[in-house]
Amino acid sequence: MIKTKGSKIVTQDDVRYIASLSRISLRDEEMARLTRNLEDILHYVRKLEEVDVRHIEPTSHVLPLKNVYREDRMRPSLTREDALQIAVQQHEGFFKVPKVIQ
């Protein structure tokens, strides 16, 4: 895989980047612990390096299903009340969120 054995697989910077991609803010102690955890797990996952997968197709679906559709027929939608009943915050029929800055 990517890095030579013995060196660290993930750095705190990697973890910070992954956290920001995942939209999770991490406190420092959590950052340190997660970095350690991920390092251990990824180190274990490196076992897969031993496996020769040349000429092997990836499996995303275990069943050989294909061409599953629905007909273009209407089904009832939720009522607005039911749809908005789940909302954390709503305003005049809209879901309300903190201001999105473009």
């Binding site: 990517i2 993930v10 992954i18 995942s22 991920l38 897969l48 496996v51 990836p58 499996t59 995303s60």
Partner: peptide, 26 residues
């Protein structure tokens, strides 16, 4: 979430996620 994001992220996909799907085949 972090582990999964890592293995899908740019630069790691082939070595982790795709590799995983291939070993899954085996």
């Amino acid at each position: 979430i972090m582990l999964g994001t890592y293995s899908l992220s740019s630069g790691y996909y082939d070595d982790y996620y795709l590799k995983g799907l291939k070993v899954r085949t085996l």
